[in-house]
Amino acid sequence: MGVAGGELLIPTIVLLFGVDLKLTGSLSLAVSLPTMIAGFTRYSQDESFAIIRTERKFVAIMVAGSFAGAFIGSRLLGIMPITYLLPLLAIILIISAVKVWQHS
């Protein structure tokens, strides 16, 4: 499905362990990364993956933008008080829920 993995992992860790939300984000990434690599490796022989090669310019620019964004987000993480992060995550989950509902 390629959706909402982190949105499930992060609240689970927070709700079960009461772990700090900043640390939880990194824990979730540490779980997501190997999982996505495994899925990607398994799917990568599929012919639908040819789109990554045919659109390689688009992919390269968006990956560059994604790296820049991830960097900016991580700097924001350093300055943003944790009390703002929880409501932000809740808003993101609600938006995700609407998006996922619309997929169907």
Partner: peptide, 29 residues
């Protein structure tokens, strides 16, 4: 599909990854 728009779209969703720890798939799709 101008390069700046592509870059910005990637950066917008990527910032959620850096800040919250998400891949951001629902926002990018």
């Amino acid at each position: 599909r101008n390069p700046l728009a592509i870059f910005n779209a990637g950066a917008f969703v990527g910032s959620l990854g850096g800040l919250i720890g998400l891949g951001g798939a629902e926002f990018r799709l």
